[in-house]
Amino acid sequence: MKIFYTRLLRLIWGLFLYSLGIVVTLNAHIGYAPWEVFHVGLAKTTGISIGTASIMTGVVIGLIAVLLGEKIGLGTILNMVLIGVFLDMIIGFQIIPVLNNFPLGIMMLIIGLFIITLASYFYIGSAFGAGPRDSLMVALTRITGLPIGVCRGIIELLAVFIGWRLGGMLGIGTILSAFLIGFCVQVTFKLLKFDATEVEHETLDRTYKMLFRNKKEQPDDEEMPGNY
Rank of each mutant, 00 (worst) to 15 (best):
L113T: 05
H201T: 15
P103L: 03
F194W: 08
G149M: 01
T207R: 11
C151E: 11
M107D: 14
C184P: 04
I95L: 15
G182E: 01
I91P: 11
G167L: 10
Y123I: 12
M210A: 15
P103R: 09
I175Q: 06
A119H: 05
V85K: 13
L176Y: 00
R165D: 13
P97S: 02
Y121T: 03
G173E: 01
A178R: 00
F183Q: 11
T203R: 13
V138M: 06
P147N: 06
T207V: 15
G112L: 04
I116W: 00
V187C: 03
M137N: 07
T174L: 00
L158R: 11
V85D: 12
L104H: 13
G112F: 03
A130C: 09
P103W: 14
M80E: 12
F128S: 06
Q94I: 14
F161C: 14
I110K: 02
I83A: 01
L82N: 09
F93D: 13
G112N: 01
V81H: 10
S126Y: 06
K190G: 08
L204E: 14
I162N: 05
T197F: 03
G149F: 00
L99V: 13
D205F: 15
G84C: 05
T207Q: 13
G112K: 00
G167N: 13
M80I: 15
V85Q: 13
Y121L: 07
L140K: 03
T197S: 09
S177T: 02
D134A: 02
G129C: 03
S126P: 08
Y123M: 09
L180H: 06
G149D: 04
T197Y: 03
I172F: 13
N101A: 07
T144F: 11
I143Y: 10
A127Q: 05
L180T: 10
L99K: 09
N100C: 12
I91Q: 14
